[in-house]
Design a binder for these strands. Structure first.
Lengths: 210, 210
DNA sequence: TAGATTGTTAATCGATTAACAATC
DNA sequence: TAGATTGTTAATCGATTAACAATC
């Protein structure tokens, strides 16, 4: 695995798509796969598949031979960091936040949400899916105590920037933002926006241009 | 608005980011904005901002003068189709599905979830946020009756492909998939995957390469 | 007018694809 | 061996940036 190869975000974001497709093959007990099949699944060219996989799983395949599904899955998980456990906290235990705390599937990606935070006093001290919920007022102490670097944010719009500022002050380095607003943040903080508007833009544009 | 201009998905997906930033400016009572400010907010070049906005809001600005925040918001919403009401149904009223039914913010994007569907009999006939929940067995009839073209899918992994097949058979043209699996679908069906793994890949890669 | 900003063509850069060699 | 497939360099395509003209 060449960790030092510079790859683009676009390329990086294709890898989980490969992974999902390979998992569906494994689920159907298919053990071998060609670049052509992968290309069809991802709606891209065979050449691109070969180049992509060369980065993640070099020398794992031989000319003339199909690729091994299980081996590719292992290489991809390793490359993407899904084999390690990455701890995160969640801020904002509303409908969406509760859904995240309850969701069992994050462990497939090595993500472990270890606690939730909310301003609502009646939630403090309770648990969801065995995960404790703390008061937002203990955020700073807990973040430092737990040493967690990733925070999932699902708070009301109005308070989100304030919450994000607090998180950054407490030492959080990466923010997974589910709130549809623009966030100000220092350059060294990684922010990923799960913006619903992004998908909707694509839908409406494609629907209206048919 | 030049609807016929061919733009890339990458470009299209930048527009909701402009919109979010402009809304935050309006929220701060800022009425004018330069390409430079927009470029900083989106982490791109001024030239790109000008080109992007030229497509969405041509002739809305003049050399030497700053752009009008409210005018840009209006142009963007119009271009993205957020001014019209677009109806959708939701399949899978679990934790995540319930959160979507409860979420009030979709109306900002012109999205109206008009009903939920689930296999659980105890949910049938109930409502969440005034939205009725029907049995999955009435899916085909209801989709045809309502004439809805967009479906949000938040079902358990194992049944998702089956549900998607049913939706397509019933006339749904666009699928917003929140389930982290690979979906098979005809080319004329628009599928957008809200894949959690995509963001996590970016996080872990950037964290591990520091 | 001078400074600031926008608009647009030309140049550059990077990502994708085409072509072909290498291997099983 | 022949067919199928992978690997990799070179060519192409598209998106971004640089340069400069136009306008307030």
């Amino acid at each position: 695995m060449k960790k030092d190869t510079k790859i683009s975000v676009k390329q990086l974001e294709r890898y989980p798509i490969y992974l999902n497709f390979l998992l569906s093959l494994r689920n159907s007990n298919i053990e071998k796969v060609s670049s052509k099949q992968l290309a069809e699944a991802l709606n891209c060219s065979e050449e691109q598949v070969r180049k992509d996989l060369q980065v993640v799983a070099p020398n794992s395949s031989k000319p003339g031979c199909l690729r091994d599904v299980n081996a590719l899955i292992a290489y991809l998980k390793e490359y993407l960091g899904f084999n390690k456990v990455n701890q995160a906290i969640l801020v904002g235990v509303g409908h969406l936040g509760s859904a995240f705390l309850s969701f069992k599937g994050f462990s497939d990606y090595g993500l472990d949400i270890i606690a939730g935070f909310d301003i609502e006093p009646s939630l403090t001290g309770t648990t969801i899916n065995d995960k404790p919920i703390y008061s937002i007022f203990s955020l700073d102490n807990k973040v430092k105590e737990l040493g967690v670097k990733l925070a999932i944010v699902a708070t009301p719009k109005e308070v989100t920037q304030e919450v994000v500022n607090k998180l950054i002050n407490s030492g959080v380095k990466a923010i997974w933002n589910f709130v549809p607003i623009h966030l100000e943040h220092p350059d060294d903080i990684i922010v990923e926006n799960m913006d619903f508007a992004r998908s909707l833009s694509v839908f409406f544009h494609r629907i209206n241009n048919k």
